[in-house]
Computed example of a mutant assay.
Amino acid sequence: MKIDVVTLFPEMFDGPMGHSIMNRAAERGLLDFNRVNFRQFGLGKHQMVDDTPYGGGAGMLLKPEPLFDAMAHIEEQHPSTKKRVILMDPAGKPFNQKMAEDFSKEEHLIFLCGHYEGYDERVRSLVTDEVSLGDYVLTGGELAAMVMVDATVRLLPGVLGNAVSAETDSHSSGLLEHPHYTRPADYKGMKVPEVLMSGNHGLIEEWRHKESLKRTFFRRPDMLEGRVLTKQEQEWIAEWQRDFNEDES
């Protein structure tokens, strides 16, 4: 996979991209990551990339020319790749695991990181997706892009040591992930559930599924909206609801 990040602060990506999963993906030839500083396409001797908005208002807007030229530069470097261009924008669609899974299937991703008060509206003609990390505003799009790149790259085949890890992550199955335990079996009186040491894989999988559902039911009930529950899942939820009501009374 090729990833280009168009940014005014390429050095911000040095740390995250040089360690752990991202570095491993690059070393294995699974990721070609590049940073494009669109300041180099700025106007005039001062390489200006922003200007005041027409009609007045606070702050500065990113000009269209540097970003259009940066995109043209990337196209010249990689003319044959199918590109998906993602604009970092707090007004965009909220990023989630399904989006990361979709991104991981693409050949070439380009993340446009804004700064200042926003973009000249014409920049949006360059993009395929407008994405937000959440309902809040960051100083720039770089941190959001780092999160999205990380969530995407770890899903590429061969990046994680165990492919099942990605499949069982929270949100991948539509449920939060079940609890995990390792040795010792008893730590300060807190014991590992016996079923996990039973060797009965059928019971273990049932326990894990039940705990995933339980964690989701209590922490993120919104994730269950629209989910078609099995009879067993309905019975479990009814049981937890009764226990919760009894505790409240």
Rank of each mutant, 00 (worst) to 15 (best):
L109S: 01
D135G: 09
S104L: 08
V153Y: 07
Y136T: 02
A145Q: 03
K105L: 15
E106P: 13
S104M: 08
D102K: 15
S104D: 06
T139H: 11
E106L: 14
L156R: 12
R122A: 04
L143G: 07
V147R: 11
Y116K: 08
V147F: 13
V131I: 15
E106D: 15
A145M: 01
L156P: 06
D150L: 07
L138Y: 11
G140T: 13
E142V: 01
R124V: 01
G158H: 08
L156Y: 15
L109Q: 01
G134S: 13
Y116G: 03
K105M: 14
A145H: 00
V147E: 11
A151L: 10
M146A: 10
D120N: 09
V149D: 06
E117M: 09
S125A: 14
G140D: 12
G134L: 10
E117F: 09
K105I: 03
E117G: 01
D120C: 00
L156N: 10
G141W: 08
S132T: 06
R154C: 01
F103P: 04
G141D: 00
D135F: 13
A151F: 10
D135L: 11
G141Y: 08
G134A: 13
V149E: 07
G158P: 00
E142N: 00
A144Q: 07
Y116S: 04
T128Y: 13
C113T: 04
E121M: 12
E107F: 08
M148V: 02
E121L: 13
I110C: 00
L126R: 00
L138M: 14
R122L: 03
L156G: 06
H108I: 00
D150K: 03
L155Q: 03
T139V: 14
I110S: 00
L109P: 00
D102M: 15
V137H: 07
S132W: 09
P157C: 08
G114K: 11
T152C: 02
A144H: 08
F103T: 05
D129Y: 11
G114R: 11
V147L: 14
Y116N: 04
G134E: 06
P157Q: 09
R154H: 01
S132E: 06
L133N: 09
T139K: 12
E107P: 02
T128E: 14
E107G: 01
V123G: 02
C113V: 04
D150A: 06
V149H: 09
R154D: 02
T128K: 14
G134Y: 13
M146V: 12
V127A: 08
D135H: 13
G140I: 11
D129K: 08
E106F: 13
G140A: 13
D102T: 15
S125E: 15
V159Q: 02
T139F: 12
T152P: 02
G118F: 07
A151G: 01
L109W: 07
V149W: 10
Y136F: 15
G114P: 04
P157W: 12
A151D: 03
E117C: 05
D135C: 10
I110V: 07
G118A: 02
H115P: 11
F103C: 09
L138P: 03
R122N: 07
